[in-house]
Simulated assay, not measured.
Amino acid sequence: MYMFSLTQPLIHSVKRSIDILGALAGLIVLSPVLPIVALAIKATSPGPVIYRQWRVGKSTPEQVNLFEMFKFRTMVQNAEVQSGAVWATENDPRITRIGRFLRKTRLDEIPQLVNVLKGEMSLIGPRPERPAFYSNLEEKIPFFTERTYGILPGITGLAQISQGYDTCIDDVRRKVAFDHSYSLSMYSFKSWLLMDMKIIGKTLLVMVCGKGQ
Rank of each mutant, 00 (worst) to 15 (best):
A25G: 09
S45I: 08
F101G: 02
M197N: 01
G47H: 10
D196C: 13
T7L: 12
A177F: 09
R174A: 14
L194F: 14
A38W: 09
R52F: 07
V206G: 04
A85D: 09
I18S: 00
A159W: 07
F101Y: 13
Y51K: 01
M75Q: 00
Q160W: 02
P46Q: 10
M69W: 05
Y149S: 07
F4G: 00
G154Q: 06
Y149L: 12
D196I: 12
Q112I: 03
Q160G: 04
K211F: 03
W87Q: 08
S191M: 13
S83K: 08
V114F: 15
G157K: 05
I151E: 07
I124N: 01
P111I: 00
S59D: 04
W192G: 08
K211L: 07
T44R: 10
S59G: 02
D170I: 07
G210E: 09
L123K: 01
V81F: 06
L10Y: 07
V56N: 01
L117N: 07
C209Q: 15
I11G: 01
E68C: 14
F178M: 11
N136E: 15
S185M: 09
L21Q: 09
M186G: 03
E90H: 11
S17R: 10
I110Q: 02
R94A: 03
A25R: 04
I41M: 10
M75H: 06
V116I: 12
H180C: 03
I98R: 01
M121Y: 02
D179G: 08
Y134T: 03
R73D: 02
E62L: 11
P32F: 10
D108N: 14
P32T: 11
E129Q: 14
Q112L: 09
A40G: 10
D92L: 04
E109K: 05
